[in-house]
Design a protein around this nucleic acid. Sequence first.
DNA 1: AATATATTGTGAAATAATGCACATGATTTG
DNA 2: CAAATCATGTGCATTATTTCACAATATATT
Lengths: 219, 219
Amino acid sequence: MTKESKIPRPTIERLALYSRPLEIFVKSNIPIISSEKLAELCGVNPAQVRKDLAYFGEFGVRGVGYEVRELLREIKRILGTDRRWSLCIVGMGNLGMSLVENDNFKQRGYDFVAAFDLDPKKVGIELPCGLTIQPAHTIPEQVRAVGIDLGIITTPSREAQRAAELLFRANLKGILNFSAAQVRTPECCIVENVDLSVKLENLVYHLEMLYKEKNVTAQ
Amino acid sequence: MTKESKIPRPTIERLALYSRPLEIFVKSNIPIISSEKLAELCGVNPAQVRKDLAYFGEFGVRGVGYEVRELLREIKRILGTDRRWSLCIVGMGNLGMSLVENDNFKQRGYDFVAAFDLDPKKVGIELPCGLTIQPAHTIPEQVRAVGIDLGIITTPSREAQRAAELLFRANLKGILNFSAAQVRTPECCIVENVDLSVKLENLVYHLEMLYKEKNVTAQ
DNA sequence: AATATATTGTGAAATAATGCACATGATTTG
DNA sequence: CAAATCATGTGCATTATTTCACAATATATT
Ligand SMILES: NC(=O)c1ccc[n+]([C@@H]2O[C@H](COP(=O)([O-])OP(=O)(O)OC[C@H]3O[C@@H](n4cnc5c(N)ncnc54)[C@H](O)[C@@H]3O)[C@@H](O)[C@H]2O)c1
Ligand SMILES: NC(=O)c1ccc[n+]([C@@H]2O[C@H](COP(=O)([O-])OP(=O)(O)OC[C@H]3O[C@@H](n4cnc5c(N)ncnc54)[C@H](O)[C@@H]3O)[C@@H](O)[C@H]2O)c1
């Protein structure tokens, strides 16, 4: 098992990616998929798919392919999404609201069990999803009491670190941070930062490259 | 210039990251920053920072550091964010609404100039940001007429490919896709996929690893 | 002005990730 | 049942990325 700690990071990211088409295939009752087909659907190399999976076992049958249902089950087991995870969310602005109300999360095994905000005008509001917004200072007690697994931060950037501290001090183990601030945590707490404008800036860079190449080759 | 095409992808991602603390330093009137400080703030290695920057020129002064204002200006020039970009957004549900109303984008140089939806109940609604939701079938003409640079897809996954096709057929060059579906485009159009539940699944995997290691070392 | 200290830029080593190409085993066909 | 076909699993070469370590250069100190 300790071997699994030297799995390439990109492999983990791709496993999650692979599960999307697999879910669709399960629904469509398609029993078998090849690495080639799965690779095509995810925009990667077929050998990559096979290698990624081979880190964890032999899930395929030579000359045949992978049994869709079984493969999806294995990937979920590997990722840890074969059980439900409880989430709380801190900062109930536009983005926070949009996330709690999105039921893709529930379908994928994530349950929002608490929503927090600092603003007294927001505290007490009952959300369509059934939760009532709680005051931010109650984060520690509630995280501990309910045993919340993961926290999502959707506060303004300048408040993100403060929010994170309330969370990990209450012994919560993972944080998904949507603010533009880089959040710092002790080793016992894992953070994923998702800065959406970083994504936009990537896109813009690659576009500029595309334009430049065109100009060069056109001359 | 063609040399810039073999810049490591991760370098581009980090450049965008570096600009966040730099923006704050500019506001705080801090004139100089070292690679070590910048690295610490972004959670990377200082040599990495220097190498990333060195791909594009010599922006620092030995023994001193980097002039904050100048460095930010250079990074923006490199990324292509030294000009404004026009955006349209397709699918005005919770997430789409939250994105158009977020004014971080405007601050960073992105202007939403059109919003589209398929649903007749949504078409015609005037948004707080001033835009009126347009019917999706008008995407081609409006993208061409206004000369929109980038498109954001926030439709349900099953509609994402259709939305993408309307966009790139109208000669739009870049797409940021928030649906869980992998969108396929011709070479002339660049897509960034941002699947938020992939991020969650990554987090969950690394958490599970953390737990397992603890159990192992505890025994 | 000499010495100590700070910090960049970069070649080269180390590490990480990808993808080819083929042996291996399953299935189909004639 | 032999031959042809298909598709996995994997060793290895290749390519990509990170990090080290140090020469080069600037500033501070005495
Ligand atoms: N809305 C988007 O589409 C979008 C896009 C990209 C990034 N983001 C980022 O996501 C974050 C949230 O965006 P938003 O548009 O929802 O902002 P918002 O201003 O609408 O909401 C922020 C909410 O956080 C609350 N808050 C502030 N400090 C808090 C604290 N310490 N504890 C708890 N709650 C606190 C505020 O009361 C408010 O309700 C921001 O960091 C933003 O940069 C948002
Ligand atoms: N809301 C979130 O927080 C969140 C989180 C993660 C991922 N996502 C993804 O983002 C997407 C949007 O999420 P949402 O919660 O806003 O969904 P939503 O159902 O609230 O909104 C989708 C909108 O798209 C419109 N639409 C459907 N087909 C269209 C088409 N062909 N052209 C134009 N408009 C069309 C619908 O009328 C609707 O208004 C989904 O793919 C979802 O999986 C959302």
